[in-house]
């Protein structure tokens, strides 16, 4: 896509106020997560900073270190505002890394299946179909339980649960491109199969993949939160949003709502905002919805 097309794309995107607002929210959250060490009073992963006397304090409580815990503290005495930003950091990191890996693996598989057809297509796409026929969370749960805790393991589980969506989308887009004359022209030159796949089919199949990627990053984040909530995600020393929610869950009924609710709100805002941006991009790239 060149600069001119990008500008036209942005002009159309900016016509929708909700989408612009959603994009601003996503960017703000990303910026806050990236700058978390600079704008938070506490490093929630450094156990030396935590004081149990500050545990389970309500929002606004001024702790032993002399600053206010604007969103309260959790059961270990972590400042929730800091923990949420650090948690967002991990969630975004997991979502983006898993999304990018799933995009490259799934996208390549789908395009290769579309290009070669025949048995290769049958093999790849039936495995993908099989996997799409049961819920991603189930596969992620089984894998997370088998592989154990840790970032690498978690990303592997997320990728395994999500690549199939990319493969399906890439296959659909590349099958349509495959039949166009420019692919035939490339084959008639002749150019090698890998060149046709990566230089011609891939760039032309990218728009729908980008749409799926935005939505799948949001899904990866919520999947990671779910796994962490169920205790299969990251180690408790580095709580992600899901684990913060899980940790606070047992105190919900005792009136200490803030431990679960604030991380939950942060998670919802992030996922809703990413989905709104993704929906707008999808509508813009879908020529059938064009006015």
């Amino acid at each position: 896509m060149n600069a001119e097309a990008l500008r036209a794309f942005w002009d159309e995107f900016s016509e929708s106020r909700i989408s612009v607002a959603a994009l601003a929210v996503v960017l703000a959250i990303v910026a806050a997560a990236v700058c978390a060490p600079l704008i938070t009073p506490q490093d929630p992963y450094d156990l030396g900073n935590l004081s149990l006397s500050d545990a389970r304090r309500p929002p606004g409580f001024v702790g032993s270190k002399g600053y206010a815990h604007v969103l309260g503290t959790d059961a270990q005495g972590r400042d929730l505002y800091s923990a949420i930003l650090y948690g967002l950091r991990i969630s975004l990191q997991m979502g983006l890394v898993a999304g990018a890996i799933a995009l490259s693996i799934g996208g390549t598989l789908g395009i290769v299946a579309a290009y070669f057809g025949g048995r290769i297509e049958t093999l790849i796409m039936r495995i993908v179909d099989l996997q799409l026929s049961f819920p991603a969370i189930l596969l992620a749960l089984v894998l997370a339980a088998l592989l154990g805790q840790g970032k690498t393991q978690l990303v592997s589980a997320l990728v395994a649960a999500q690549y199939a969506y990319f493969a399906r989308t890439a296959f659909g887009a590349a099958s349509a491109e495959r039949r166009k004359d420019y692919v035939e022209a490339a084959a008639a030159t002749p150019l090698s199969g890998s060149r046709i796949v990566f230089r011609h089919l891939l760039p032309n199949s990218l728009p729908p993949l980008i749409v799926v990627a935005t939505v799948q990053v949001a899904n990866a984040i919520s999947l990671e939160a779910t796994l962490s909530f169920l205790g299969l995600g990251l180690p408790p020393t580095e709580p992600s949003l899901g684990m913060l929610i899980a940790n606070g869950f047992q105190y919900m009924m005792s009136g200490r709502y803030w431990i679960s609710v604030y991380p939950g709100i942060a998670l919802i805002i992030l996922i809703v905002a990413i989905n709104l941006v993704g929906d707008q991009i999808r509508d813009q790239l879908n020529p059938r919805l064009r006015r």
Binding site: Y182, A185, A188, T189, P203
Partner: peptide
């Protein structure tokens, strides 16, 4: 042997 196709709107890669 090289080929010129019928439809020049389809035979050129739009992203190249």
């Amino acid at each position: 042997i090289q080929t010129v196709f019928q439809d020049p709107f389809a035979s050129l890669d739009p992203r190249m």
